[in-house]
Design a protein around this nucleic acid. Structure first.
Lengths: 322, 322
DNA sequence: TTGTAGGCGTTATCAG
DNA sequence: CTGATAACGCCTACAA
């Protein structure tokens, strides 16, 4: 006999009343509640969440789909997890290691009601295929998705990039290199587009020979700068994929006794703690707010209340590297 | 009516038979299986995991308790997650942000059968208190625990430290600084003990004025080295808390044109990818194997099979910084 | 190889 | 405020 049943027997009340006490229903006599509570204590009772989930049709779990736990995504994840927790949702992490089948597993878990919703941070399956899972429950993505597929809270990073570019041009700096991350991502396309259109508008040459790709971390940044200095002409500024890359470039530049920002201006991206501690000029990326928006989006489909997502934008944070 | 019931009705077979097909029981006529499978397809059936879990008394979920997702623990986590997945277990991450109440939540979830077992990576509650949860299910820890509390797969890092020390002494280097992480941790105590006992045995002075604490990342390492160079006498070698700290020290030393290893020898800890790419001498820490052992320990309590954990040890990896 | 009947631990809907 | 009674969706003896 389950402890729940034992409580029913021992207290002499019905299952319904015991359940009411467990769920803090107000429609219970105080004495009754006290008696039942006491018995619960004695029996060291804890509700079985599987039974609750089965009965309620909800698990209060949200899945997070990601290829691999990596530094860059931690802030977003941590904020999302915290948001979920605030609403009494636990998060379950699906690291796929880039394996399509493993990734599908997460979506199957949505189908199987193991999770009430899904957050995609990075996915490797075709978004078209994944979007067919939308009928099993709410899905939101951080990774940018083409329209008509899975909803996303990502922002067009081209917008942020513009801020950095205009800032440099306003200072009279025109020889600008670009250091990118994943070559095929939508964000890189936007960034490149922003750079190229602004340069053209100003009648300046587009230096695609100064593009560097696959630059994610500090070491990548250092290497990227070395490769740029090997060019015939060396740029006076670098717009970076993120703050880590920027930090690497700053490191390498200092090592070669380059004056920053006089000889080399550097702009990071994201406004992480690292950029603050190094005094890097950067583009503030409202990651925390994106994470909360992502959760709200799911919550609006799962729960009954409805929370308005906030409108977000990038912002230039000027520090000592420009 | 649930899809399960629909299948029962449409196929004309009993619940039991349908269940057998779902679970790939061999005791089903092939034709029967085919018919039922076809209906399952048509209905787009997927089993409800909550119902399964309730019925089986097992969720195939394991909880991971950790204060905050951080670079340093990612390798261990990723390996553990992979091990779990191999045995069809999903992992659910409890980030506590150092909040005792949040942490307890994870243990309450063990009690409530939301998870079948728990892995502690870092905990903030008193281990004595937490160990009372052992009766609700298996718990294993990566963080070192004092005997008699919660079982742990952690290794005594003092052993690894010894290897580094002996290596330096064999080279005739005796002015050795120590750069530690969390001051109160058991591992730091072991490391300090290893250092002090070995120095004494060799009749060498114990330089506790060269101890530095709270050194975790690259930036911490850089700062630690600056603080050491400000001393009256400067050490000829540093034993580090981890490879990141070592990388920071290496960076800072190079910036000041110090010859490594001639003027300064550096030994990292863990043998991460970073140490390999930088050519850091380090202590190999079998993290992957620890992660698998951790899972096996849980699995031995949860499942019916039993897997033998492997015996592990540290190993010196000599590269270019000594 | 298949079916019957009962159970897993709660919640929900009524009616009282 | 309280109690019956029926879900929730699936598994598992045991029997046939």
């Amino acid at each position: 006999m389950s402890k729940f049943e034992q409580i029913v027997k021992l207290s002499g009340y019905s299952r319904a009343t015991v359940s009411r006490v467990i769920n803090h229903s107000p429609h219970v006599n105080e004495e009754t509640r006290d008696k039942i509570m006491q018995i619960m204590q004695q029996l060291d009772y804890a509700p079985n969440r599987n039974a609750v989930a089965l009965s309620k049709g909800r698990t209060n779990q949200i899945g997070i789909v990601i290829t691999s736990l990596h530094e860059i995504v931690l802030p977003f994840m941590n904020h999302f997890i915290e948001a979920a927790l605030r609403y009494d949702f636990q998060t379950i992490i699906y690291t796929t290691q880039g394996d399509q089948a493993k990734e599908i597993q997460a979506f199957e878990d949505l189908r199987s009601k193991r999770v009430d919703g899904l957050l995609i941070i990075t996915c490797v399956n075709d978004p078209g295929k994944l979007s067919s899972y939308c009928r099993y429950g709410p899905i939101i993505s951080w990774q940018r998705m083409r329209a008509g597929q899975i909803p996303s809270v990502a922002m067009d990073q081209g917008e942020g990039y513009r801020l950095g570019l205009e800032h440099l041009l306003a200072k009279g700096i025109t020889k600008i290199a670009n250091v990118f991350g994943r070559p095929d991502s939508l964000n890189i396309q936007s960034r490149r587009l922003a750079y190229e259109s602004i340069m053209k508008r100003h009648g300046l040459p587009v230096r695609s020979d100064w593009y560097r790709y696959e630059v994610y971390g500090m070491l990548d940044g250092e290497q990227a700068w070395r490769s740029l200095t090997a060019m015939e002409e060396v740029p006076e500024a670098v717009l970076c994929s993120n703050d880590y890359a920027a930090a690497g470039i700053l490191n390498e530049a200092r090592r070669h006794h380059l004056a920053v920002p006089e000889q080399l201006a550097i702009i990071g991206f994201d406004d992480t703690e690292l950029s603050a501690s190094l005094g890097l000029t950067t583009i503030h990326n409202p990651i925390k707010e994106q994470a909360w928006n992502a959760f709200y989006d799911l919550w609006n489909s799962i729960g009954d209340e409805s929370v308005e997502a906030s409108q977000l934008s990038f912002r230039l944070v000027k520090r000592q590297t420009t």
